[in-house]
């Protein structure tokens, strides 16, 4: 299954729109029995609101018995996540990938 590709701008300005797209996407992946995979390589700008949206996504995934997998998180994203003290879960092992 193709991972969901996050846009370059993961900030308060786009979270509403992005949430709608993630919701639509999550409907399609919900029935597949595999981890929800999100490609974060394109993220060039991120803020706390963006990170919180990913946390929401993770919560939805675990509600379906799945985990969220964040692949190739860009430095922009990991910097914010680290600033927020989020070093476990999907933000855990840096740019590669990890399982919550």
């Amino acid at each position: 299954m193709t991972p969901f590709a996050l846009p370059p701008e993961l900030t308060i300005h786009g979270v509403d729109d992005l949430r709608q797209r993630l919701l639509a996407w999550s409907v399609t992946v919900r029935d597949l029995d595999e981890a929800w995979c999100v490609d974060a390589s394109a993220v060039a700008e991120a803020d706390s609101a963006g990170v919180q949206l990913l946390l929401s996504l993770e919560r939805s995934a675990s509600a379906c018995g799945q985990s969220l997998r964040l692949t190739s998180a860009s430095p922009a994203l990991t910097t914010v996540a680290e600033a927020l003290g989020l070093t476990a879960g999907p933000f855990g092992a840096g740019p590669t990938e990890s399982i919550a």
Binding site: V15, S48, A49, S56, L57, A63, G85
Partner: peptide
């Protein structure tokens, strides 16, 4: 000892992504 308290973050379906739900202890 920075801990991000994400307990209040809603699932994608039920939350307003523009509302901040974060708390911290440090």
């Amino acid at each position: 000892a920075l801990v991000c308290d994400t307990a209040a973050v809603p699932a994608l379906e039920d939350g307003d992504p523009e509302s901040c739900q974060l708390g911290f202890t440090l």
